[in-house]
Design a protein around this nucleic acid. Structure first.
Lengths: 140, 140
DNA sequence: ATTAGTGCAAACTATTTGCAATAAG
DNA sequence: CTTATTGCAAATAGTTTGCACTAAT
């Protein structure tokens, strides 16, 4: 279910949404980034290239992408959301020291279709600990 | 690792914290409740019994409990935290319709000690879907 | 030309903080 | 008595919203 830039743009078009430069830039930024950026990080990074960009537009864009399934919102910290362009199911590891979020390729769970009479549609697995880099720094 | 009220109060005492009526009430409320209440829900419920209670105290108390491992903060919605007195590992199921959060007793994952060179300390599994009650209501 | 999208500022929500008053030990 | 805890109000952080302006189609 990994989609390319072109495929994701196709989703926008087909649903009748305009291909604006903010949308292109946010989508491109998400696809390039592995760091699961926050709305504010995306805004700050893109503001340099597109000085007219406003934070509201970043939020609007991320909301649209999330609704269309073009991006995903990750709730590893309560205070702020992080976003990623990957929409295929995968585990996230968050470092409790440096707060970095990593994608884990190894599939460690297979979700059941139902549990205790509730119908399961999707699920998230969040692991927390000390990342490789912080372990090396003795930052534990 | 399921602890009783008395055991949890013991943790407070041993760390030199006062046993105030707000703390007793919040702890008692959490132990009685299966609904994973938000800070505001706890505040509203207890305000009736203890009219002098302030929201800041509820937040202070929940923060202290979380730090001491007496309660747990659950981040199923980004906007607000939910809390529970259970601190043993277990899966949470959230209904996307009614937003109710259920504890799942069945253990569906066993976390590895490390993944891709990161040291795993703990983890969360969140399942989302339609709960039994909403399915019956045809609320899907 | 239309109307969706943008930018700005103001509004909103959940949570935190500073400080004087209060109560647990 | 002493100092942790409380209650209040103000502050903060992230996100949303209303509205006039702009730009994609």
């Amino acid at each position: 279910m990994k989609k390319t830039l072109k495929e994701k743009l196709e989703v926008l078009k087909q649903k009748g949404h305009f291909l604006t430069s903010s949308r292109l830039m946010v989508l491109d930024y998400l696809l390039e980034s592995k760091s699961h950026p926050t709305a504010d990080e995306i805004y700050s990074a893109l503001k340099k290239k597109l000085p007219s960009l406003s934070k509201a537009t970043v939020y609007n864009t991320l909301k649209l992408f999330t609704e269309l399934g073009v991006a995903r919102e990750i709730k590893v910290e309560r205070e702020k959301s992080r976003f990623e362009a990957r929409t295929d199911p995968h585990v996230h590891f968050t470092c409790v020291k440096c707060k970095a979020v990593f994608d884990i390729e190894k599939q460690i769970v297979k979700f059941p279709k139902s549990v205790e009479n509730h119908k399961v549609m999707f699920g998230d697995v969040f692991l927390y600990g000390i990342c490789e880099s912080c372990q090396r720094k003795g930052n534990s």
